[in-house]
Computed example of a mutant assay.
Amino acid sequence: MTLTHTTSPAFDLPIVLPAGETVFAVGDVHGMADHLLRMRALLRRRASEVPGPATLVMLGDYIDRGPASVRALTALAEPHAQPGLTERFLIGNHDAMLRAVLDPTVPAPVRQRNRDRWLFNGGASVLLELGLADRFPTEIDAITALLREALPAEVIGFLNALEPCAIFGRVILTHGGIHPSVRVEALEHYFAASTDDPGRDSYHWVRQDFLESRPETRSSASALAGRFVVHGHTPSVPTLMPHRLGIDTGCYQTGVLTAVEMTGARARLHHVHPEEVEVPVLRDLLRADVSGGGAGG
């Protein structure tokens, strides 16, 4: 498979990043290591071309479903120093499930629930890659021990160091989103919550309540008021709304890995994909919704 890349025309954001900042964000990888390596090389090159400092943020869900989760994790765990570029790695719900299973200090019933969720959501692809699919035990302590033995120590360390979010002024990057019921004063606590046994409203699991939130239906004290979220987690065409930009294009199914490059109030999308695959077009709902107040109001 020959991969290429495509860059979209620039478009306007409803909010402005801090002056001088260039931020890149990459959507869900899900075991598509070749796409990841091609995208990372592209964005590192772009970062060397922009004026001022740049930050590259991976939005999480590096594993499951695709064929090369461990290779993706191993590549991400390798230290990289590039002048003017900071790289940050966020946690997705799939990464959190595996991390909990790997942690012997997490209570056994919680690890067991994470094991069940993880396998139900595509974790079997990791077992296949590790050669464990035919000899995977049922007892949770044995599972934890076997996975800790099979995975490189640097990969386990990488998973343990994943962050909940990256914040640039009033722009928040996180895996799934922010539930609209979260108040401004509770935002720090929301992102500090344990990922071992989360609810469906957590930042790495939330979906519809966040995706469909509108200014007229949420409190003015909501953490979403006046903020803009860049996220993955929910596969779709890239979607721009007054409060969010979603860039998970379902790479393991579509063959398209998407990233966004943002400077000031302008952005453009980068796609890595096979030559024969058509890239998705931005679904811009901002113009239609802007009269409702928008993320900047």
Score class of each variant (00 low, 15 high):
Thr4Tyr: 02
His5Arg: 12
Thr6Glu: 01
Ser8Arg: 08
Phe11Pro: 05
Leu13Ser: 04
Leu13Lys: 07
Val16Met: 14
Pro18Leu: 09
Ala19His: 12
Thr22His: 06
Val26Lys: 00
Ala33Met: 10
Leu37Glu: 03
Met39Val: 03
Met39Cys: 08
Arg40Ala: 10
Leu43Lys: 04
Arg45Tyr: 14
Pro51Thr: 11
Pro53Ala: 13
Thr55His: 08
Leu56Trp: 03
Val57Trp: 10
Asp61Ile: 01
Tyr62Phe: 09
Asp64Val: 07
Gly66Met: 09
Ser69His: 05
Ala77Arg: 03
Pro83Gln: 12
Leu85Trp: 03
Leu85Cys: 03
Gly92Arg: 03
Gly92Thr: 00
Gly92Ile: 01
Asn93Leu: 10
His94Asp: 07
Arg99Ile: 00
Val101His: 04
Leu102Arg: 00
Pro104Gly: 08
Val106Asp: 03
Pro107Ala: 10
Pro109Lys: 07
Val110Asp: 10
Gln112Val: 11
Arg115His: 15
Arg115Glu: 12
Arg117His: 14
Arg117Lys: 15
Phe120Asn: 14
Phe120Gln: 15
Asn121Phe: 11
Val126Thr: 14
Gly131Cys: 02
Glu139Ala: 15
Asp141Gln: 08
Leu147Pro: 00
Arg148Gln: 07
Pro152Glu: 01
Ala153Cys: 05
Asn160Ile: 13
Asn160Tyr: 13
Ala161Gln: 11
Glu163Gln: 12
Cys165Met: 13
Cys165Ile: 09
Ala166Leu: 06
Ile167Phe: 09
Phe168Arg: 05
Val171Leu: 09
Val171Glu: 07
Ile172Tyr: 06
Ile172Ser: 08
Ile172Lys: 02
Thr174Asn: 06
His175Asp: 08
His175Glu: 06
Ile178Asn: 08
His179Gly: 09
Arg183Ile: 07
Val184Glu: 13
Val184His: 12
Ala186Val: 12
Leu187Asn: 02
Glu188Ser: 14
Asp196Phe: 01
Asp197Pro: 05
Asp197Gly: 07
Pro198Leu: 04
Asp201Pro: 06
Asp201Thr: 11
Ser202Tyr: 05
Tyr203Met: 09
Gln208Asp: 14
Leu211Met: 13
Leu211Thr: 04
Pro215Ser: 03
Glu216Gln: 15
Thr217Gln: 09
Ala221Thr: 15
Pro238Tyr: 06
Leu240Met: 03
Leu245Val: 00
Thr258Trp: 05
Glu261Val: 12
Gly264Thr: 05
Arg266Leu: 12
Arg266Pro: 09
His270Ile: 07
His271Ser: 04
Glu275His: 05
Arg283Ser: 15
Ala288Glu: 14
Ser291Trp: 15
Ala295Trp: 10
Ala295Val: 13
Gly296Cys: 12
Gly297Tyr: 10
